[in-house]
């Protein structure tokens, strides 16, 4: 994959910027960021990758969940500059063209959403949870997914979707 040239994210950005290197969904980016830019804002506002959602912006809702080096985190509570060198996977990086990731397909099949705003975070979180390998029972899945709120209350179907996708996701992120 060819690296894109360092992109100046704000025209008025001056000496405060730091150049970082991020691999986002398999694509290498060289980016000049101001230190106060969160990973979430970098994705949404600067790279126009709006699949990752801003809900509370305080780590309380989980809508901003992405995978950093395969681990699920709240992108709203991480500075982009602190993730220099990381591999980031967002909801946009899961499907292979029209071929959905098993977790995405399971969410569709189980009708695991209404408004859909929490869904990208739910899906990334569920994939991260399976990689962690600590949730075996339904109660454990509920507990391990408690950092992802769904205001529509689709929890039962979200649980069903995750259960359905677990066997297909055991190998971690699909390449």
């Amino acid at each position: 994959m060819n690296a894109t040239p360092a992109r100046q994210l704000r025209p008025d950005a001056g000496a405060d910027t730091h150049t970082i290197s991020l691999n986002i969904n398999g694509k290498q980016h060289e980016l000049a960021v101001e230190p106060w830019t969160t990973l979430l804002d970098l994705l949404r506002e600067h790279l126009d990758m709006t699949g990752t959602k801003k809900g509370c912006d305080h780590g309380q809702c989980g809508a901003c969940t992405v995978l950093v080096n395969g681990t699920r985190i709240n992108s709203c509570l991480s500075l982009a500059v602190m993730q220099d060198g990381a591999e980031v996977t967002t909801i946009e990086g899961l499907a292979n063209g029209d071929d959905l990731h098993p977790m995405q397909a399971a969410f569709v099949e189980q009708d695991a959403f209404q408004c859909g705003y929490c869904t990208p975070g739910q899906i990334c979180s569920a994939i991260g949870m399976i990689a962690e390998g600590k949730a075996q029972t339904r109660d454990e899945i509920r507990e391990q997914m408690s950092g992802n709120l769904c205001r529509c209350g689709a929890y039962n179907n979200i649980l069903a979707a995750i259960e359905q996708a677990i066997p297909a996701c055991k190998g971690g992120l699909r390449e």
Binding site: R72, I73, G128, Q144, S146
Partner: peptide
């Protein structure tokens, strides 16, 4: 304490 995401950070 917290959520899985926060504990990971």
């Amino acid at each position: 304490g917290a959520s899985a995401q926060l504990r990971n950070m």
